[in-house]
């Protein structure tokens, strides 16, 4: 038996989101763990999000066309935001 965890596609509906959106993929041994891993990897544990997971192999695709995923990092970890750091104006954009 291969020990490689299967690949899952992750869909998230955020607090203000409408439909679930594809945000990326990850590996997990089964669906339950895929959901938990998705919480840790793709939401950094933001609450109030709904997660769907689908095994990548189970997806039937037409010609792909989707916009790039853009997700906010967790709001509780302020140091993840660049404005947390006071960089002097003289330094310019960083």
């Amino acid at each position: 038996m291969s020990s490689e965890w299967p690949l899952w596609e992750i869909f998230i509906r955020g607090q203000h989101g409408l439909n679930h959106r594809h945000v990326g993929s990850l590996h997990a041994p089964d669906a339950e763990m895929a959901i938990r891993n998705a919480r840790d990897v793709y939401t950094r544990r933001n609450e109030g999000v709904s997660i769907w997971v689908v095994r990548s192999n189970d997806i039937t695709a037409s010609s792909p066309s989707e916009k790039g995923p853009l997700y906010d990092p967790s709001n509780s970890k302020v140091y993840r935001h660049p404005t947390f750091y006071d960089i002097p104006d003289e330094i310019g954009h960083m």
Partner: peptide
Amino acid sequence: PALEEDIALANQAL
């Protein structure tokens, strides 16, 4: 042992 686990553990430590 796996990237997903690495990330989850870091959340826990944080």
